[in-house]
Write a protein that binds this DNA or RNA. Structure first.
Lengths: 338, 338
DNA sequence: GGCACGTGATGAACCGGTCAAGCACTGGGG
DNA sequence: CCCCAGTGCTTGACCGGTTCATCACGTGCC
């Protein structure tokens, strides 16, 4: 009950191995009649190509690889990870995803080199891109096609797939401004991440445009405790913010908990917005107003761009469909301040 | 700058390819002197074996595969997934994990067959095992070593790795009983999952032993909404429970939110326990008393058992270190009932 | 001295594909 | 009629390992 090989097909069809290879790969060298006969036999025998053998003979692999810095750091956000995975796999179809954890960028590049050398992966998805990321410089040199998830724009050879966070920032701030908020603070992750940076810059720009003088950005390590501390610090100052934006759902929950302990009501005293929508945002009370990003689409799009790159295309940077703001109970009119 | 092959090493050492192969694999057929010379040259050249070539020549692969039903269903719990992944990868070391999503068990088995046929994976971790799982019957037939994550005990050929949930159930119920709780309800996931079943059975058994007459189990689909509905239903009955156990942290948060909306205080009116501890449990108020399971250890252990199985061992079912109960603010003395 | 035997090595086949080179056959143009 | 180009297929090398059959070379024993 071994799986059939092209040799079996060749024997059955009365042709050579080479002819079968040409026929099944849709390349010239065999007549249409023979091609049909061969594909019919292949289907009948239930033949499927051996990725292993293909890889060994130097053909680009179809599998996609992904290295995680530290699992918890993927894109800076935990719960989003599974949605991302779903999208990736949906677009990947029968091809498989190879996952590996690497402690640092050097080790990560080593993994890329191995994957490429062995042709185990034909391309990779780059997670958690940073400013001046050495990986982005090195990958084209290795020759391994790569797509940066939420990465910097305009990198030659390494296209980025992004969610239009800037637009979302605009929408959120516009919404909050319309509610009368002037002092808005943004509790976000490590500043080295491109994603964080993009949001922070958009935040500053939009706040400037809307004339929100009291806009502030606070960087944390994305941990709940960090979020709590940042919230306390922000509220302790003079002229505290009337609206808070959090980078994750867990961070936002930590935030409203901290606010409640400070004796502040949400949304009466302070409004809260979470960055990624989730079941948690719906379930908590007050339910969290959140930015819903098309994360699964993001993953799927990344794979399709990578595929394009792998087949010789030269896709530029790409955007998903725009994120949307889901308003719930955690936001309301600003309390008239001093 | 191609990577070196054993042919390069052979040329350098002045021996044949075969000798190099024997030497590097630590098998008889070469003298100790030659072996040393060859390994030295291999190290110097920076040689690393090509998994691809090895796979093609029929050697068992070292990589481990894992198929996800639907990502969100892995072990029934989302946040745990990343911790699991961390543990798996820690034990896996430089070997890589191959991940694939399959819509149903038939497709999943097809993936296993392909992986095994191509020797892409030398073994697999089985997720979300069920009672009378057809995969567990089929995998030994395919010949692919497999370890069931939290699976049924005593399956010939497919060892299980488990966390001792029964002990945890005992601890939780003992703790609640000591606080005076008699009517305890368990809000859990789909009954087909072995994991859920084990907990439910332990729950019933322990409740019986402790004489908790009002113990009840409610199955949900693991969604937050399902948890809310179950909570409402439980509290609406006559003689409602004074303590609630939830299968996930998100479920528990949904639960305390629902309780608050029903006008019930936690823990004064009702105590709440979450099954898997997480940042969320610490951050929410009242902070959630939770069962902390060694999830990363669980993943690592599964890989090490799988490795044993892959190298011809016959490991039986294995347990992780015991889970522990972390008491926080969401549990307290039972309110004297009617 | 002849023979069996263990050791250490070699050479070649093999895994399942890809692909360049070669070859037989056909048809058209000069 | 011959040459050439194109079509359709075969042959065989190759990718980087593993493994089996074989063999040369001492060594020990009768």
């Amino acid at each position: 009950m071994k799986r059939p090989t092209i040799t079996d097909i060749a024997r059955e069809a009365g042709v050579s191995k080479g002819a079968v290879s040409y026929a099944l790969n849709g390349r010239p060298g065999v007549s249409e009649a023979t091609r049909h006969r061969i594909t019919a036999i292949a289907r009948e025998l239930g033949w499927e190509p051996s990725e292993t053998a293909r890889a060994l003979s130097g053909v680009r692999a179809g599998a996609v690889g992904m290295v995680l810095d530290r699992p918890a750091d993927v894109l800076g956000v935990e719960p989003v990870f599974l949605a991302l995975l779903t999208g990736i796999q949906r677009e990947l179809g029968p091809a498989s995803l190879i996952l590996q954890v690497a402690p640092d960028h050097a080790a990560e590049l080593e993994v890329y080199r191995r994957w490429h050398g062995e042709r185990r992966a034909g391309g990779v998805l780059l997670t958690g891109p940073r400013r001046d990321d050495d990986r982005i410089a090195e990958l084209p040199r290795i020759g391994l096609p790569a797509v940066a998830l939420g990465g910097p724009l305009g990198c030659p050879g390494v296209p980025s797939v992004r969610v239009d966070d800037a637009a979302a920032v605009g929408e959120v701030l516009g919404y909050l401004a319309a509610l009368g908020h002037r002092r808005v603070a943004w509790v976000t992750g490590p500043g080295v991440l491109v994603q964080t940076r993009v949001r922070a810059e958009a935040f500053a720009a939009v706040a400037g445009r809307l004339g929100l003088a009291g806009a502030r950005t606070v960087h944390t390590d994305h941990s709940g405790e960090g979020g709590v501390a940042a919230t306390r610090r922000l509220l302790a100052g003079s002229r505290p913010p009337t609206a808070l934006l959090y980078d994750t759902d867990v961070l936002a929950v930590a935030g409203i908990t901290a606010l409640r302990e400070l004796g502040l009501a949400v949304p009466d005293d302070v409004s809260v917005v979470a960055w990624d929508d989730s079941a948690l945002c719906r379930l908590v009370r007050p339910a969290l107003t959140a930015v819903r990003r098309p994360v699964a689409e993001f993953g799927a799009l990344a794979v399709s761009v990578l595929r394009d790159l792998m087949t010789g295309g030269d896709p530029g940077d790409v955007r998903t469909s725009p994120p949307s703001l889901v308003t719930r109970g955690s936001t309301g009119p600003a309390r008239p301040g001093p």
